[in-house]
Amino acid sequence: MTEEHSAHSVHTAPKKEPGPSLFPEMERLVAEVLSGIEVTSEQVVDEHAIIIDRKDLLAVCRRLKDNQRLSFDLLRCVSVVDYPNESVFQAVYHLYSIGLKHRMAVKTGIPYDDAIVDSVTSVWAGADWHEREAAELLGVEFRGHPNLRPLLLPDDFEGHPLRKSFKVPELDQARFRRGRE
């Protein structure tokens, strides 16, 4: 994994005017727990989100889970989104704390030319299939995953269907018939 990529700072959130944070309490707490790690806060509609460098992913996840005041014990979802214009994937981890009833999202960029990121299965076992699915449908590799075999697609399927470059002719025709893109 190269150190000098800058693609992790891809911004996808609504370009809001910089203003007071929607979740100041959470932002302060997260910044405190993650001190020493470079963290960018992001404004998302209804939760606090941070963008981190992928090399810090495991450390961040561990701290967010183990810290008593955050205790994000439930991994709700792992989503990977393809941004071809920026040549980057973005992995988004939605976290929830059952005891404290709060939520947040952690995001990290994965550049096209080095599409590999640490697996968080060692932090939450429930990441297993989410990561297998993302590996298969988007072609991102999760380092340290115990079993990164294909999950949903037939064994002889070629390509990564959730990439934007993967075209489904029927969908394009449907769009064309509607006469607008």
């Binding site: 370009k15 998302v44 979802c77 989503s79 939605h94 929830y96």
Partner: peptide, 23 residues
């Protein structure tokens, strides 16, 4: 508008979540 949101609701089987990204 551009933006993204994650909504999870209580489905009979558990949390049904939608992560919706708009550009």
């Amino acid at each position: 508008k551009e933006g993204e949101v994650y909504v999870g609701t209580e489905n009979p089987r558990g949390e049904y979540g939608i992560y919706l990204v708009s550009r």
